[in-house]
Structure formats: C-alpha cells, structure tokens
Design a protein around this nucleic acid. Structure first.
Lengths: 156, 156
DNA sequence: ATGCAAATGCAACTCATTTGCATTTAGAAC
DNA sequence: GTTCTAAATGCAAATGAGTTGCATTTGCAT
C-alpha cells in the first residue's frame, strides 16, 4: 500500500467540489490540519519552508483562507488583544478557549460552558432595541474566558 | 464651581488620578457615555461636531481610548466580520450581543447565558494541553451569538 | 491532448492604527 | 494669579494587515 504520495491526512473536512485542489491549497490545508491552534495568514505562511515561501504569495494565502471559509471548511475568528484574524479547521465540534491576560496563552476548554437547548434565544428586553421582544436564530457562538493561568497567577 | 456647567454626567467610571482631564478626553468620555453600543475610534471621531473634528486629531482619539483602556475605564473588543476595534465604557455589569450574520446588526442579550458560580473553571482534559489538569482564574468573559435576526430570516 | 475558468504571483493599493516630534496645556507649586 | 513641567495634543509620516487589478499559470473537464 503506497501512501507516500498522500501527504495530506484524510480530511476531517471534505474538500468541496468546484474548487481546484492546487498544491498551494493542499499545503495550507495540511498546515491547518497539523496546527494545534488557530493560525493567522502570516502564521500559515511562516510555517512553509523557505523554498515554498519564495514561490508562494502571501495574497494567495489570504485568498485560500477566504475560499476555505466561504466553503465552511474553516472558522474565522479574532481574539481580544490581537488585531489579527485567525483560521481554524472546522473539525468535529467547536472549541472555546481560556485566554491568559498575562502570557496570552490559550487553553482549550474541556466542555462548552454554554448549553443551548434550542436554536432560539431571547435577545431583547424591549428598551434596548427597536426590535421589541423577538427571537434570533442562533447558528453558532463564540465564548472566550479571560483571566490568569496557573503559571502567571503564581508570578504575582 | 458651578455644577450646571458640567455637561458630563456623573461618571459610571471614576476618572483615575494621574490623567489630565482635557477637553478632548471629556468629549470622548461623553460620547462613550451617551453611546448605546461599543464604538470604534472612527465612530467616536464622527460623533463630534465638524468644528471639533477640525481641531482634534484622530490619533488623539486612539491615544485617549488606549489611555482609558489602560485605566480600566473602557473595554476593548473586536467583532467577527469587522476588522475594527471597538470600545465600550465599563458600566456596572457587562453585556453580550447576538450578531446577525446577514445585516450585521447587534442585539444586546437580555441575560448573560453564562452563569459562572465560582471564579474558577476546569480548562484542560489532559490531552489537549501540556498544562495537564489545572485551574484558570477567570476575571472576565465574552460571549457572542451568531445567527439571523427576525428581519433577515424573513428575507430568505 | 486541448481549452478555459479558476487560481496564482506580483505589485500597487486601502484603511485602521501607531509613532516621532514640535507645540500646547492641565494642574501642581509657588 | 503666575510659573513650571510632565503629560497630552496635532500633524504628518510610517506601519502593517489585508485587498485588488491584471497578466500569467494550472487544474481538470472534455
């Protein structure tokens, strides 16, 4: 069984039809797949070998990540304190993080602290919004906890 | 000292000692205080009268907002889909939003969906993190719901 | 193998945010 | 009130993430 040609692991996310499976895209996919945390375009670029960097354009990375996002392959996020946008492969289930305000380390939460039974929530109290009291159809959510990790707590 | 000249309401947030209470800062404070939602530096700038805009520099707004943030007077946030950073006066209690993925409207949530009893949460499951199973001291959190508001749901 | 739409490389551009520096000003000390 | 000085400001130039136009290349369907 020759698997040496197949560097990319079996995708957790299917590659959608209609998009070309170019070597640049394979490489970006592979880097996201190997990553243990969300990456910015610059970080993806930085993880290529120097030889690759010479022949790839950073704008291509942005376009690839945008294409991946449009096709629901990745999730686009921003973090407090950091201006840059990061991308994470949409594996099974989502992950939330606790972010250390001191060392900026991100620690994945074991469980999502939010358990939304239904797909609807009550959003307005009637005085903050011209909408009155209505429903909102939730399709996704983001939670971040801010605080201090054990190490940084000890430092103080 | 006549109180009636005081245009700025009694601060929900005390102005810290060591910072000069300049007319620019008063104005930025007032704008943030009047705002019903977080504002970007550009939005703060835009809410000044044209006459003020001529004599104020946008870089000053950035510096003021940075100073306010350093002194815990405001909270700095970024939102998905929008590259710009927004600032919100730290009033009593925090607010979370539901963000419409279509029209980008932000609707304040009536209640915080997260009720954290204690100040500590379990963060790692032992396989995602080199930290092992440790605690993390939570000081604040951010929640955003993404989905579709009633209007945009109707459009589809 | 061929053709063409999709994808890429490159360079120039936009736009939010930052920074260096000369000038002004709040507020404490007289 | 006047003086003094560090802090704050205005301005303009710089930065840096991200985008875009266009000529060229390349998957991939035929």
């Amino acid at each position: 069984m020759k698997k040496d040609k197949e560097q990319v692991k079996a995708p957790a996310v299917e590659y959608p039809a209609g998009l070309k499976w170019t070597k640049q895209r394979k490489r970006v996919y592979q880097i996201l797949n190997d990553a243990t945390e969300p990456l910015s375009a610059a970080q993806v670029y930085a993880r290529m070998e120097p030889a690759e960097q010479e022949q790839y354009a950073i704008s291509t990375i942005y376009r690839i990540l945008a294409a991946f996002e449009e096709n629901q392959m990745v999730e686009k996020t921003t973090w407090m304190g950091e201006g840059t946008v990061v991308y994470e492969l949409r594996r099974s289930g989502h992950v939330h993080y606790a972010v250390c305000l001191d060392c900026h380390k991100r620690i994945p939460l074991e469980h999502c602290p939010l358990h939304m039974g239904g797909a609807h929530v009550h959003v307005a109290d009637g005085k903050h919004s011209e909408l009155g009291t209505e429903d909102f159809e939730v399709v996704s959510h983001k939670i971040e906890l801010y605080g201090y990790c054990k190490e940084c707590k000890a430092k103080h």
